[in-house]
Design a protein around this nucleic acid. Structure first.
Length: 601
RNA sequence: GGGGCUGUAGUAGAGUCGGUUACAACGCCGGCCUGUCACGCCGGAGGUCGCGGGUUCGAGUCCCGUCAGCCCCGCCA
């Protein structure tokens, strides 16, 4: 049986109790975190989103409140009135921010009892994630995720303030939009009013924000949900949040400098860390050469070294063949790792195998400088010397080599570099290394579809000096695109857009979208570009990924209130679910297979 | 679509070479306890060993399948 709230008003949050309030009459409301019953005296740790405060109930002082407290259990919602008092000599708890004081309770109301929760809500109990997700509303009472979401709110506020200060307008764009070719798989929404037709949920507000530039809004932003129906990862959810921006009359350097100012302000407000600006910037080609991936972690060295020229014509057939056939032979030097066991090396070989490398050659540099390696015997003394010099090899080092196509070699070794960086503890979680990656290729050849695809998206402008290449050698054209990479994670990316209708049409043609299809899918954009579109460009940041880094979360689910599982389901609401036959009929939809009736073949 | 890891009281775990009635902790319930703060002490309840099949005299343990969660490749900027 619960008590009514009545005319009680909360005066303080639990976590805000301090010595300054000693003597004050206060009223607290919250959840019972723990109850300690000493037979006589009862202590209750009362919790709300600000923290925990201690209530003291003395049977001599107030028998009625004390009797009521005997019935209280964990997670009951209670309200308590009393006087803030200093804790007696020797009972101060220095590990709590409210530990100097307690509230001597004179009156207690049980606002709502609670069943015993399916798992403990303290900070010590590790709970299986599927259970946490099923009872997410309980899991969200726990301090870590709750603090993550509070910080997420603060970051969103910082973003709004910074962008508003810089002349940006927050404008909403439609969620029910049109499916367009290119990019990720769309989430579709059937239209009842137009049977057989579908909306698509936006993968990003890309076209709308460009049209807002044509309309003259000049600077736009939105903190907006985006949807992509692709498989999930530790840092990927099917619905995620972007800080989406677009600016008119700007080139790349303008966008980059305004945006790194925003990132600096986020880090200042959230972590009280001053970033040095401007952030460094590297061309895609250089990043690939030195790190093998386009999202390098710059907290440590271990750069990739190209030894293709050295091993051209060498006695080791695997290397020589790759070098002769336009492939790439590269190596990294793991300083001091000559102690790795055979099993360690086997594991690393398996690791690069994931990315298509057929093997991982290795060399341990011994104390006398000699090479312990299955492949050393294939090389001449000069070749050994040249390789050792190129990698700055010293006794105790472990050199590792991959020889394959340029794409495989770079990705395999680049990922290996990142893997070893973590394994060897070279990645300080308190260090934040930013880098802009620029000059991406505009297009990429898709061997399967036998056509070019846009590396960024089809509206990305080529570098001014590369525009002629669109005719002569489109694969060589570079884009006015930029990614912001932090500690090996891409946190944002964008580009200057094409604002010329002819260039945009040419771009669609290069992508294998013929005029008719371009007209059908993007006609409104092509039209708009003919009515005075200003030069413009923009960027989108992944808010979830930024929050992962700021909070140190291992999983994107820890920075989202109600996340989905790897199968894109919600364990709490059990979405997605089946719908009534009537709903389907209204939409003009008939299922090819009933849910649950699918036959496993 | 593919590879890997995990699954045992409410929770998180142990469980040997396949062998008696599946363990102890936390939580829960009852009792005691007036300065604790992950309070303490005594007692008690609580099990479809994810599910299905197989091998065996006998399966938590071995084999096959399947489901769920997680990590990764493909996919996705």
């Amino acid at each position: 049986m619960s008590d009514i709230l009545g005319d009680w008003k909360r005066t303080h949050y639990c976590g805000d109790l301090r010595a300054e309030q000693i003597g004050d009459e206060v009223c607290l409301m919250g959840w019972v975190h723990r109850r300690r019953d000493h037979g006589g005296l009862i202590f209750i740790d009362l919790r709300d989103r600000t923290g925990i405060g201690q209530l003291a109930l003395d049977p001599d002082r107030d028998p009625e409140a004390h009797a009521k407290a005997e019935a209280v259990r964990n997670e009951f919602v209670i309200a308590a009135r009393g006087k803030v008092s200093p804790r007696p000599e020797g009972t101060v708890n220095p590990s709590m921010k409210t530990g100097e004081v307690e509230v001597e309770i004179s009156e207690l109301r049980i606002l709502n009892p609670a069943k015993t929760p399916p798992f403990m809500l303290d900070e010590f109990t590790e709970v299986a994630e599927n259970l946490r997700l099923k009872y997410r509303y309980l899991d969200l009472r726990r301090e870590t995720v709750q603090q993550n979401l509070i910080m997420r709110h603060q970051v969103a506020q910082t973003v709004r303030n910074y962008l508003t200060d810089n002349g940006f307008l927050e404008i909403e764009t439609p969620v029910l939009t049109k499916s367009t070719p290119e990019g990720a798989r769309d989430y579709l929404v059937p239209s009842r009013v137009n049977p057989g037709n579908f909306y698509a949920l936006p993968q990003s507000p890309q076209l709308f924000k460009q049209l807002l530039m044509v309309s003259g809004f000049d600077r736009y932003f939105q903190i907006v949900k985006c949807f992509r129906d692709e498989d999930l990862r530790a840092d990927r959810q099917p619905e995620f949040t972007q800080i989406d921006c677009e600016l008119s009359f700007v080139d790349r350097d303008d966008v980059m400098s305004i945006m790194e100012g925003m990132v600096a302000r986020i880090f200042k407000d959230a972590l009280d860390i001053e970033l040095t600006l401007p952030m460094p910037s590297l061309a895609f080609s250089e990043v690939m050469e030195r790190f093998g991936v386009d999202n390098p972690d710059l907290r440590f060295d271990m750069e990739l070294v190209n030894i293709t020229d050295i091993v051209k014509g060498c006695g080791f057939k695997v290397f020589a063949d790759v070098a002769a056939k336009d492939g790439l032979v590269k190596a990294i030097n793991a300083k001091g790792c000559a102690t790795f066991s055979r099993k360690d090396l086997d594991d690393l070989t398996d690791f690069v195998g994931i990315y298509g490398a057929k093997g991982l050659a290795w060399v341990k540099i011994q104390e006398d400088g000699s090479w312990q390696s299955p492949i050393a015997k294939f090389f001449s003394a000069d070749e050994l010397d040249a390789i050792g010099k190129a990698l700055a090899a010293e006794p105790g080092d472990l050199l590792m080599f991959v020889a394959d196509t340029a794409a495989v070699t770079n990705e395999a070794l680049g990922r290996l570099r990142g893997h070893l960086g973590h394994k060897l503890g070279l990645t300080d979680p308190k260090e934040y290394k930013f880098v802009w990656v620029t000059d991406f290729p505009l297009l990429e050849w898709d061997g399967e579809e036998r056509r070019h695809v846009a590396v960024h998206h089809p509206f990305t402008a080529p570098l001014d000096e590369d525009v002629p290449l669109l005719e002569s050698d489109p694969g060589k054209a570079r884009a006015k695109a930029y990614d912001l990479v932090l500690n090996g994670s891409e946190i944002g990316g964008g580009s200057i857009r094409i604002h010329d209708q002819e260039v945009q049409s040419k771009m669609f043609n290069l992508l294998g979208v013929d005029d008719e299809e371009a007209r059908e899918k993007f006609g409104f954009l092509l039209d708009a570009l003919e009515f005075g579109a200003p030069p413009h460009g923009g960027i989108a940041f992944g808010l979830d990924r930024i929050m992962m880094i700021l909070t140190g979360a291992e999983s994107i689910r820890d920075v989202i209130a109600f996340p989905k599982t790897q199968k894109a389901t919600d364990m709490m609401s059990e979405a997605p679910g089946s719908v009534d036959e009537k709903q389907l009929r209204e939409l003009g939809i008939r299922l090819a297979r009933k849910p649950g009736a699918e036959t496993k073949s």
